[in-house]
């Protein structure tokens, strides 16, 4: 748990230290470029010959602990973390925590809705497929979920946007809310939010439909072949009840435990989908921070994401104990 957390953060911290083109370089490059009035120039022009007073450079380095040995700096960062201080963004020059907390709810909103959508579609679908194993319905639905699986989420998002947004104009072309949000009535706001939510959520969830549906189907089929199912039939239990009580309870065990893992991942957001739908979420922020060498933000997002995944793992374990009486905390 804690070792995992330390391991991941230390690893990324080290990488940020050794990858060429650190934040100071980047900063100086940008300054030099803006100074010479050239925008979008090639990276080759980034020479360190900048008219920055040497003292200022040192104080910058000191501010970001870049003057200290790596391990030392890592522990300083870790110490700051304990006081919930994630540092300041190089780029935006505001506290990282503020940057993240502003965007986090947006990603979480789409993630959780997509996640709920995936589970509420896949569990019944998997059950129906297991019961009608080998039917046309089974093959047809398999085709659809695997189609969703084989198209990347952002590509599907793009397709949906082109078709339903640009062509048919059923849905807006992205964004989290309309710019006229403030002027809308209560119900208008709800409608607006739903319109903006629909396409991104499908793009978020489509990829996970296949694995979750097939997991549900296989799990139920496997359990329907178990000895205790035969016992239930031999007792005269009606077949609906055999399936929906005896077998389903057992086959939900892997689904439930997967839930915890999945939740940590979906809440972390997805850069490409956020980019396509022009949503200012965590995924988008993370990606641009890496491009900008804005390492304080990268580390901050990493902390949040790692924490989420670890929390998800704990949730999984808790769910495991709740659904499977054979597992007990000892």
């Amino acid at each position: 748990m804690i070792p995992t957390f330390l391991g991941i953060t230390l690893l990324v911290f080290t990488i940020t230290r050794f990858v060429p083109g650190g934040p100071i370089d980047r900063l100086m490059m940008e300054m030099s470029m803006s100074g010479s009035g050239e925008a979008g120039g090639g990276g080759g022009s980034a020479e360190s010959s900048v008219d920055l007073p040497p003292g200022a450079l040192d104080s910058l380095k000191e501010h970001y602990h870049l003057d200290k040995p790596m391990i030392h700096a890592y522990f300083l960062w870790l110490g700051d973390l304990l006081t919930l201080d994630l540092g300041k963004s190089f780029k935006y020059n505001i506290p990282v925590l503020e940057l993240i907390t502003k965007r986090f709810p947006v990603s979480m909103y789409f993630g959780l809705i997509g996640f709920a959508l995936a589970y509420s579609v896949c569990v019944p679908l998997g059950v129906a497929k297991a019961i009608r194993h080998g039917s046309h319905f089974d093959f047809g639905s398999s085709f659809l979920v695997f189609l969703g699986y084989s198209i990347p989420g952002w590509a599907l998002g793009l397709l949906l946007l082109l078709l339903f947004g640009a062509e048919l104009e059923w849905f807006p072309l992205g964004g989290f809310r309309s710019s006229s949000w403030e002027q809308l009535s209560f119900f208008g706001r709800i409608g607006d939010q739903i319109e903006h939510t629909f396409l991104p959520v499908i793009a978020y969830a489509a990829g996970s439909f296949a694995s979750l549906t097939i997991l549900m189907k296989n799990s139920l089929m496997e359990n329907l072949g178990q000895d205790y199912i035969r016992t239930a039939f031999a007792k005269g239990v009606p077949s609906r009840r055999v399936i929906f009580s005896h077998a389903l309870r057992n086959s939900l065990i892997p689904i439930c435990t997967g839930l915890g893992h999945a939740i940590g991942i979906v809440m972390a957001g997805s850069y490409l989908i956020e980019k396509v739908f022009n949503i200012d979420g965590i995924g988008y922020l993370g990606f641009t921070s890496i491009m900008d060498r804005d390492y304080a933000v990268v580390m901050g997002i990493l902390v949040i994401n790692t924490g989420l995944i670890l929390l998800g793992n704990i949730l999984s374990d808790v769910l495991y104990v709740l659904v499977d009486p054979r597992i007990r905390f000892s």
């Binding site: 205790y228 035969r230 016992t231 031999a234 005896h246 057992n250 659904v323 499977d324 009486p325 054979r326």
Partner: peptide, 14 residues
Amino acid sequence: AMIFQEPMTSLNPV
């Protein structure tokens, strides 16, 4: 009524 060979797997574990 019927009973089976495998008492370990013939009862529902949950």
